[in-house]
Design a protein around this nucleic acid. Structure first.
Length: 835
RNA sequence: GCCGGAGUGGCGGAAUUUGGUAGACGCAAGGGACUUAAAAUCCCUCGGAGCUAUGCUCCGUGCCGGUUCGAGUCCGGCCUCCGGCACCA
C-alpha cells in the first residue's frame, strides 16, 4: 500500500486481478439465496454517457452490497445492438453496421470495466449476433403457430426521415421519438403481435407489482386504458343496415340527439360521396382541436325509444377505437355539448343531481352520476344502477352486447430497415405464408448490403436473400424482407442471461433458478414501452412453458434523468460546451443563447463525456460523486462542482487508513463500550444499511460515512490517547464503502494485511444497544418554541427528563411566575411546557 | 383538460417512515495557519433581519387559511415547475 492515493494505478490493478480470479462469475448455487440484479443494457452508440454511469453505479452498489450480505448474485450486462444509428453510420461513413457495432461494443465494454463494475461477462448478450436473434425468430414462429403473430394491412405511423414504421409508443406528440420528424400516415402490410389478448392480464397483474413505483404502474394502466361499456346497434332509416356504436354511458341512451361517425368509417364513405371532403376533415384547418361535424341526409333510430336522430361525420371520432362511431349526448358530455351548441342541435337532459329536471337551460354538460329522468321505465334509477339495467335490457332485447375496449393496440413489429432480426417467414404462391422450419434457423442477416435505397427494406434488393425454396412444396418462393422492431430484442434478454454464453439459451433449470429479476434499474423513459413488452413476453413464455413466473421484474428502480443546460448559437445551432468560450460561439463569435435544462442528448449537444472524469479522478470518485449528488430516482442537473468533495473524502480515508494501517486488524475484544466513536460506528452501520435497504438513498449513506470519517479524524487529532476502537471503526468504514468505491476498499483491505477479497467479507452488523449515543441533547420547548438544550444521559425516564427540564435556569426564566398548564415529554428527546 | 411528482440557504441536497431542535453531508464563497511561493492539507465563519453584539430576540421550508402544546411534515384552498397521457366516446 502506497502512502499516496493513486487511483489509476490501483484501479487498473484490481480490475485485472478481479478478471483473473473470476470473482464476478456466478453459478447456480444451493447455498445462499439468489439475487438477480439487472440494469437496462445500453445501445452501443460508441461511448458511455452520464446516464449510463449513473445507472450502472447504482446497480453495482446493489449487486456488491447483496453479495456481501451473502446472496448469490447474478449481475450481467450486454448490448442492445440492433438499431438505426448503425445504419446511419453506414450511410454517412461507409462502415458496415456490424463492424461499427462490434467496434463500439469493444470500446464501451472497456469503459464499463474501467468503472469497476462487477459484471459476469460469461453471460454477455449481444442482440445482433445470430446466436441471440435466432431465438427472436424462434419465438416469432412459436407465436405465429399460437395465433399471436399475424399479418394485416393497416394505416401505420411512418417516419420519412427514418424511412420506417413506428409503433404507437414511438410516436411522441405526432413526432418520431428518435429524430423528431413529423409522422405521416401510410397504409402497409405489417406483422403484429396480439398483445391485446393479454391486456387484462397485463392490467390485473399491475396490482401484484408492489415493488414498482406507482408512477410507472399508473402509466402502464393508462396505456392499457381498459374501459367497460356496451355496443349498441342503432337502426338506419330506410335501410336494414345497423349502425353499431360503443358507449361507456348506457345510462344516457335516452339523451342521444345525434350520431357521429369517423371520417373513414365505411358508412361515412357511403353517405358522403365527396371523399375528399372527408379526407380534408381529418387534418382539418389550423386548429387541430376544433370540432367539426358534417351532416348527412340520413337518420339513425334509437333502439330504446325509436326516435329519429341525425347521423353526422365528425373529425374527432377515431376509426381505430371502439366501432368508429359514437352516440352523442350533449347534456352529459362536454364535447358533445359544445358541438351541439355550435350546430344548434337539441340538448336533452336525462340525468340530474336530484331526479328533477333543471329549471334553466344547462350551461355545461352534467357528466357525473345522478338520477335518471325522461328515460321510460328507467326513470328514477341512480345512474350506476341504470348503467347495469340498461345494459341488461339491451342484451336481452338483442340490441347489442357488453364490451370491454382497450386503448392498447396490437404491437406492430415490422420495420423496413436492414439492421434488425429478419422475420423468419416465406411467401409461396402455392402455399401462402410459410414459417421457416426450426432447423433452418437462424435466418442470417446478409452482410455487405447496400443501404442507399430508402422507403423499402434494403433486404428486398438482395436477391440471394429473397429467393428461397418453399419448405412446403419445394417450389420457388420469397423471403419476408422486413426486420423486427428492436424492442423484440430487449423483451427477453433478461432470460438469456440466466445461462452462460456457452450454455443452451433456454435452459429451464437456469431460468427457474434465476428468474424473476429481483431488482431492475433503468431510466424512467422506458416506463411504458420496454417494460410493457417485457411483461407481455414473459406471460407468453409462461404459457409456452419456458418460464414459470408471470412477471419478470419484482422490484423496479427508475432512476432520474441526467440533465444539463443547452446552449445555442444563432448561426450554428446547438453547441457543445467546448464549442463556446466566454459565452460566445468559438466559430463566429456570436453571443450564445442559454436554453432549457434538458435531458442530456447528442442532438441537443448538452452531453458530458464521463471519460475525462474517470481519467482525472478515477472510477471510485466518479461513482461516489454520481451517487452522492442526488437520490437515484430524482433528475440530476449536471454540475461538476462536487467531484472534488468525493475525491477529498477518498483521500482522507486513504491517508487515515495508511497512518493507522497497523491498527486495522486490532482485536475488537475488550473494547470500551462507552466510547462515543464505537457507538457512532454502530449507528453508521445501521444508517448505511437502512439507507441502502429502504429506498437506495445512497446520498445519505455516503453522508453518514463522511461523518464517521470526520469523527475518526478528529479523535485521531486529539493525539495523545488514541481511541482503542479507531481501528475497528476504520475497518468497518472500509467494508461499508466497498460497494460504492470498490477499488479503494479492496486496496485498503489488503493494505491492512488481509489476503482475501473485501467482497468475500460479510457486511458489518450493528448492535442496537450500541447504536445509540450515551449522551443525548434534551430540547426544552416553552409554548412550542425551543428555549433550552441540555445534554443528558441517554435512556432516562420521562419523569426524570421533566425534572431536569423544569429545573433548568433558562427554562425557569421563560416560565417566570406563570402557571404551568401542561408538560409533554417525547421519549428521550424533548420536553414541551405549556404556560 | 386529465393523471402523477416536486417546490427547503448562493448551489446539490438532509430532516418527510412515527408531527417534536429546519438546513446533516458536500460544493462554492470569505477569513486564518503551514509554505520563500503555489498546490495540497488543516482550522474558523457561512438562511435573513435586529440589538445594549462573542450572547440574545424576531422572522424564515412556494402562497393563504386551519388542526395542534408544537407543522417543512397533517387537513382545506390556491400558485408555479417537471413528467406522462391527450379528441378513447
Amino acid at each position: 500500500m502506497d502512502k499516496k492515493y493513486k487511483p489509476q494505478e490501483i484501479e487498473a490493478k484490481w480490475q485485472k486481478r478481479w478478471a483473473e480470479t473470476g470473482i464476478n462469475s456466478v453459478k447456480n448455487s444451493s447455498s445462499g439465496e439468489k439475487f438477480y440484479c439487472l440494469e437496462m443494457f445500453p445501445y452501443p452508440s460508441g461511448k458511455i454517457h452520464m446516464g449510463h454511469v449513473r445507472n450502472y453505479a447504482i446497480g453495482d452498489v446493489i449487486a456488491r452490497y447483496k453479495k456481501m450480505r451473502g446472496f448469490n448474485v447474478l449481475h450481467p450486462m450486454g448490448w442492445d445492438a440492433f438499431g438505426m444509428p448503425a445504419e446511419n453510420a453506414a450511410i454517412n461513413h461507409g462502415i458496415q453496421p456490424s463492424k461499427w457495432t462490434y467496434e463500439n461494443i469493444a470500446y464501451m465494454k472497456d469503459q464499463l470495466n474501467r468503472m469497476g463494475l462487477s459484471y459476469d461477462w460469461d453471460r454477455e448478450v449481444t442482440t445482433c449476433h445470430p446466436d441471440y436473434y435466432r431465438w427472436n425468430q424462434w419465438f416469432f414462429i412459436k407465436m405465429y403457430e399460437k395465433g399471436l403473430a399475424y399479418k394485416k394491412s393497416s394505416p401505420v405511423n411512418w417516419c420519412e426521415t427514418c424511412s420506417t414504421v413506428l409503433a404507437n409508443e414511438q410516436v411522441i406528440e405526432n413526432k418520431c421519438w428518435r429524430c423528431d420528424n413529423e409522422v405521416e400516415e401510410k397504409e402497409l402490410e405489417q406483422w403484429f403481435f396480439k398483445i391485446t389478448d393479454y391486456a387484462d392480464r397485463l392490467l390485473n397483474d399491475c396490482d401484484r407489482l408492489t415493488g414498482w413505483p406507482d408512477s410507472v404502474l399508473t402509466m402502464q394502466r393508462n396505456w392499457i386504458g381498459r374501459s367497460e361499456g356496451v355496443e349498441v346497434d342503432f337502426g338506419v332509416e330506410g335501410s336494414d343496415d345497423k349502425l353499431r356504436i360503443f358507449t361507456t354511458r348506457p345510462d344516457t341512451l335516452y339523451g342521444v340527439t345525434f350520431m357521429c361517425l369517423a371520417p373513414d368509417h365505411p358508412m361515412s364513405r357511403e353517405l358522403i360521396e365527396d371523399h375528399k371532403k372527408l379526407d380534408d376533415m381529418k387534418n382539418a384547418g389550423e386548429d387541430p382541436d376544433e370540432k367539426i361535424i358534417l351532416l348527412t341526409d340520413r337518420s339513425a333510430i334509437n333502439p330504446l325509444n325509436n326516435e329519429k336522430i341525425p347521423i353526422t361525420v365528425a373529425n374527432f371520432v377515431l376509426m381505430e377505437y371502439g366501432t368508429g362511431a359514437i352516440m352523442s349526448v350533449p347534456a352529459h358530455d362536454q364535447r358533445d355539448f359544445d358541438t351541439a351548441k355550435k350546430y344548434g342541435i337539441p340538448i336533452r337532459e336525462v340525468i340530474s343531481p336530484d331526479g328533477k329536471p333543471s329549471e334553466a337551460a344547462l350551461e355545461e354538460a352534467f357528466e357525473t352520476g345522478g338520477t335518471l329522468i325522461n328515460s321510460d321505465q328507467f326513470t328514477g334509477l341512480k345512474s350506476d344502477i341504470a348503467k347495469e339495467k340498461i345494459a341488461e335490457f339491451i342484451e336481452a332485447e338483442g340490441m347489442g352486447t357488453r364490451k370491454v375496449n382497450y386503448r392498447l393496440r396490437d404491437w406492430g413489429i415490422s420495420r423496413q430497415r436492414y439492421w434488425g432480426t429478419p422475420i423468419p417467414m416465406i411467401y409461396c404462391d402455392k402455399c401462402g405464408i410459410v414459417p421457416v422450419p426450426e432447423n433452418d434457423l437462424p435466418v442470417v442477416l446478409p452482410e455487405e448490403v447496400s443501404l442507399e435505397v430508402m422507403g423499402r427494406s434494403p433486404l428486398a434488393d438482395v436477391k440471394e436473400f429473397v429467393d428461397v425454396i418453399c419448405p412446403g412444396c419445394g417450389g420457388n418462393a420469397r423471403r419476408e424482407t422486413d426486420t423486427m422492431d428492436t424492442f423484440m430484442d430487449s423483451s427477453w434478454y433478461f432470460i438469456r442471461y440466466c445461462s452462460k454464453k456457452s450454455e443452451e439459451a433456454l435452459n429451464k433449470e437456469n431460468i427457474s433458478y434465476w428468474m424473476p429479476v429481483d431488482q431492475y434499474i433503468g431510466g424512467i423513459e422506458h416506463a411504458v414501452l420496454h417494460l410493457l413488452y417485457s411483461r407481455f413476453f414473459t406471460k407468453v413464455l409462461k404459457d409456452m412453458g419456458i418460464v414459470d413466473i408471470d412477471e419478470p421484474f419484482t422490484n423496479l428502480l427508475t432512476q432520474g434523468m441526467v440533465c444539463k443546460e443547452t446552449i445555442k448559437c444563432p448561426d450554428h445551432g446547438w453547441l457543445f460546451q467546448e464549442e463556446a468560450e466566454n459565452a460566445k460561439c468559438k466559430q463566429c463569435g456570436s453571443e450564445i443563447q442559454k436554453g432549457r435544462v434538458e435531458k442530456m442528448s447528442k442532438s441537443k449537444k448538452n452531453v458530458i463525456d464521463p471519460e475525462h472524469l474517470i481519467r482525472d479522478y478515477g472510477a471510485d470518485t466518479s461513482r461516489l460523486f454520481s451517487l452522492f449528488a442526488a437520490p437515484p430516482e430524482k433528475d440530476l442537473e449536471w454540475s461538476e462542482q462536487g467531484v472534488d468533495g468525493a475525491f477529498r473524502f477518498i483521500n482522507r480515508l486513504w491517508n487515515t487508513s495508511y497512518e493507522l494501517k497497523d491498527q486495522l486488524r486490532a482485536s475488537t475484544e475488550n473494547m470500551d463500550t462507552d466510547s462515543a466513536l464505537l457507538r457512532k460506528t454502530h449507528r453508521t452501520i445501521k444508517k448505511v444499511t437502512g439507507d441502502i435497504e429502504r429506498a437506495f438513498h445512497f446520498n445519505t449513506a455516503i453522508a453518514a460515512m463522511m461523518e464517521l470519517l470526520n469523527e475518526v479524524v478528529s479523535v485521531k487529532a486529539k493525539g495523545s490517547k488514541v481511541d482503542t476502537g479507531i481501528g475497528f471503526t476504520l475497518r468497518t468504514l472500509i467494508l461499508l464503502i466497498a460497494p460504492f468505491a470498490p477499488h479503494v476498499a479492496e486496496e485498503l483491505w489488503h493494505g491492512s494485511g488481509e489476503s482475501g477479497s473485501v467482497f468475500e467479507q460479510r457486511w458489518p452488523e450493528w448492535n442496537d444497544e450500541l447504536a445509540v449515543a450515551n449522551e443525548v441533547e434534551l430540547v426544552v420547548q416553552v409554548n412550542g418554541k425551543v428555549r433550552a438544550k441540555i445534554m443528558v444521559t441517554a435512556g432516562l425516564e420521562d419523569e426524570e427528563l421533566k425534572e431536569i427540564a423544569l429545573s433548568d435556569q433558562k427554562t425557569k426564566e421563560f416560565i417566570g411566575d406563570k402557571e404551568i398548564k401542561k408538560v409533554i415529554v417525547v421519549k428521550g428527546k424533548l420536553v414541551s411546557i405549556v404556560i
